[in-house]
Amino acid sequence: MKGFVYHAIYDFKTGLRDKTLMLMNYLFPLGFFLLVGTFMTKINPFFAEIMVPGMLLFALMSSSLLSLPGTLVTSRESGVYRSFRVHGIPSYSLITIPIIGNLFHAAIVCALITVLSSLFFGGVLPVHWGWFAMVFILSALCLSTLGMLIGIVSQSSRATVLIAQAFYLPSVLLGGLMVPADQLPASLTAVASLFPATHAIRAFSFYAYGKTPPGAVMANPLLVMVAGIIINTVLCFTLFQWDTRPVGRKRLLFGLLSLTPFVVSALL
């Protein structure tokens, strides 16, 4: 237990010490937030309503999809995990600690975005703070476990970037972070449902901002995200590899199971 706690503290410090992690966890999302906050509210007044959840999800996706899997693949490829293995460090530490660390960094960025958007850019604050916190945690876990899984099934650093971008870019464009999702054509709405960010923004809207609740139970964004977290976690533990040798393609195919709850919700 002492080892786990020390590891978690070290991991958190690394997020502040490592330049790449600092950039992806803090500088990039906060810089983008300040830029968008300054201009978007003038171009699109509606943006103030979705600024807080939208920018939170942007920050979560930057750290979870662009930074987390890359760090994992680099550690595996360079033999860091093998060095950990020979000291008996359990795989659950290597899977859960980066997720916990990511959650803490995201919470700091989340607090900054929430306060700054309200103070300087007229961002609308949530109505139900308890639900806001709950949706934030579930979104962070859903995206972090997905990021972890991407790192675990990626054959190389290059593949990691490609897979992560396949989630990141469509999520930004279609997930309702910049433009309300209900303004998208029906076909694109179904496509958007394949991405966790879409469900996260819906959950923020329904639960934290008190807007119209979702109809179908299976399309409930919280349920979809919880299912995503469970499946991702199970896949992470099943497919995790210590070795420096390239990950087999079978793992990548198994990793696609992660999409199951999102595909079901898109079909509904």
């Binding site: 080892g3 590891h7 070290y10 360079s78 033999g79 860091v80 093998r82 020979v86 008996g88």
Partner: peptide, 26 residues
């Protein structure tokens, strides 16, 4: 075990590395 190609995270210091593994060994 000292591996042929052992590696530690770039940002880890020797002091942290020793504490890290010692804690895991209890």
């Amino acid at each position: 075990v000292q591996l042929q190609s052992s590696a530690l995270p770039d940002t880890m210091t020797p002091r942290e590395a020793l504490a890290f593994f010692s804690h895991y060994h209890g």
